[in-house]
């Protein structure tokens, strides 16, 4: 609803230093960071689905989920390491464990999740150590849900207005998108007759993603503007259309191969657009001093300056 925006957010007057940004925009590159966010989410939700398939005795789906979880974690790690300014020093991430750094918590989570999904996939492929493989699969269900959500905290724990203020909905946006992505991947790699739970996951995840994204844009007001404008706006709109379409198709995709392919691809494309869109919206919101200055100035004018209680 592009028209309503103008009524919701009146043009804000504010002062700045020659219109220059106050913040430094995130320097994370494309496609590395959005690709990592997508693959990490996919792998996380696939891990959770592998565990669920194990517990409910769905062997074929479990195999597909183990492979998807491992593939997502491995490819994601490659993108993450390539994103570093000093890739050779990536092990410095495991030098300390810092609860105040979502990047540190995430690196340990990724390390554990990669290891577990590696064991699970390796055991499935080679048939060796089946018990260890099963245990790793169940454990990857736990690391998986962490993988699919921590990235939202990673973004929100910055000064970037569109991310920080979105701290409530971003985890649901990302976990919904992760569930949809994993559902789509498993739909595409499992015989139709056995892929019922994957289709359900794809549909449910897609709905969660669309709802969380919509709620976030609405609640954020002025700071949500970057999600609606320019390149980020186009990506977010494309994401919504693809995810919604793919999610609806997933409910009937059991009927044919073509429907399955269409649904799975639309959801995957939608999930990727979400990640590129969120990164771009963050950049745009950091680059325009309006989104930094106006909410802070409003706070001061209302006599409610920020403070850090209890520290």
């Amino acid at each position: 609803m592009p028209r309503r925006r103008d009524e919701m957010v009146p043009d804000a007057e504010f002062r700045s230093y020659y219109g220059q940004p106050v913040l430094k925009p995130p320097i994370w590159h494309e496609p590395h960071m959005p690709a990592y966010l997508y693959l990490g989410g996919l792998s996380g939700a696939a891990g959770a689905m592998a565990a669920a398939a194990r517990l409910t005795g769905r062997d074929r789906l479990e195999l597909a989920a183990r492979m998807a979880a491992f593939a997502g974690a491995s490819a994601g790690t490659v993108f993450l390491v390539a994103e570093l300014g000093r890739p050779m020093r990536f092990l410095n991430m495991l030098r300390v464990f810092k609860l105040t750094s979502p990047m540190s918590v995430g690196s340990w989570t990724l390390a554990a999740h990669s290891g577990l999904t590696g064991v699970a996939a390796g055991s499935a492929v080679t048939g060796l150590l089946p018990l260890a493989g099963d245990a790793a699969t169940l454990a990857s269900g736990l690391t998986g849900v962490a993988m699919a959500t921590y990235t939202a905290v990673l973004l929100a724990d910055t000064a970037v207005p569109a991310w920080h203020e979105g701290m409530r909905e971003l985890p649901f946006l990302f976990s919904g998108s992760a569930l949809a992505s994993a559902g789509a991947a498993l739909m595409l790699t499992t015989p139709r007759a056995l892929a019922g739970p994957a289709r359900a996951a794809a549909a449910a995840g897609a709905m969660a993603e669309v709802v969380a994204g919509g709620l976030m844009e609405r609640r954020l007001g002025l700071v949500g503007e970057p999600y609606r404008e320019g390149r980020a706006g186009r990506l977010m709109r494309a994401s919504r259309a693809l995810t919604l379409g793919g999610g609806l198709l997933a409910t009937v995709a059991g009927r044919s191969r073509t429907l399955t392919a269409l649904s799975g691809l639309a959801i995957t494309a939608g999930a990727l657009c979400t990640r590129f869109g969120v990164l771009e919206a963050g950049r745009a919101s950091a680059k325009d001093p309006r989104y930094t200055v106006v909410p802070q100035r409003d706070r001061l004018d209302a006599g409610q300056p920020a403070s850090v209680p209890g520290r």
Binding site: A45, A53, T149, A204
Partner: peptide, 13 residues
């Protein structure tokens, strides 16, 4: 969100 995801997966299966 992590709990919701776990619950969602459980329902689907």
């Amino acid at each position: 969100a992590a709990l919701a995801l776990a619950a969602g997966v459980a329902v689907c299966f």
